[in-house]
């Protein structure tokens, strides 16, 4: 039994409708739609997010115009600020959520998540 075609949820269509809704809000309600993106990652290198990887992360985050926030549970820090990033105490196994808001949000979270997954060139 196949699901009727007209009842299927078309992801592209729904995104398109979202886009339209956002545009309408922007036009009539003076709201600016800021693209947002997020990725969940787990710290895999044994030394954790110590200072050198933190600098790599911050340097990469600063290449994007989007605002970058990194969350560990309820604790959220500015992903472009190394001092704040050190407060995450992200040891191996820590789950983080990388969030970005801005025109290049998707590219930013993609690149930052890939950096974390690479283990920062460590084991």
């Amino acid at each position: 039994m196949s699901f009727p075609a007209d009842k299927r949820i078309d992801v592209r269509a729904s995104t398109c409708r979202d886009g339209k809704r956002r545009m309408i809000r922007r036009l009539f309600m003076n709201e600016t739609a800021v693209p947002e993106a997020s990725r969940r990652v787990t710290i895999e290198n044994s030394l954790g997010l110590h200072m050198r990887p933190t600098m790599q992360f911050v340097d990469l985050a600063n290449q994007f115009r989007s605002r970058v926030v990194v969350r560990k549970g309820k604790h959220a820090v500015d992903g472009k600020n190394p001092m704040e990033m050190m407060l995450l105490e992200a040891v191996r196994g820590t789950e983080l959520e990388i969030q970005a808001a801005g025109a290049d949000a998707e590219d930013a979270v993609e690149a930052l998540a890939a950096l974390v997954k690479s283990g920062f060139g460590e084991q």
Binding site: G48, L87, V91
Partner: peptide
């Protein structure tokens, strides 16, 4: 003891901030 190292760093920076 990398975990303890990160805990100490967190502590130092939390105060220095």
């Amino acid at each position: 003891n990398p975990d303890q190292h990160l805990a100490s760093m967190e502590n130092i920076f939390r105060h220095l901030q």
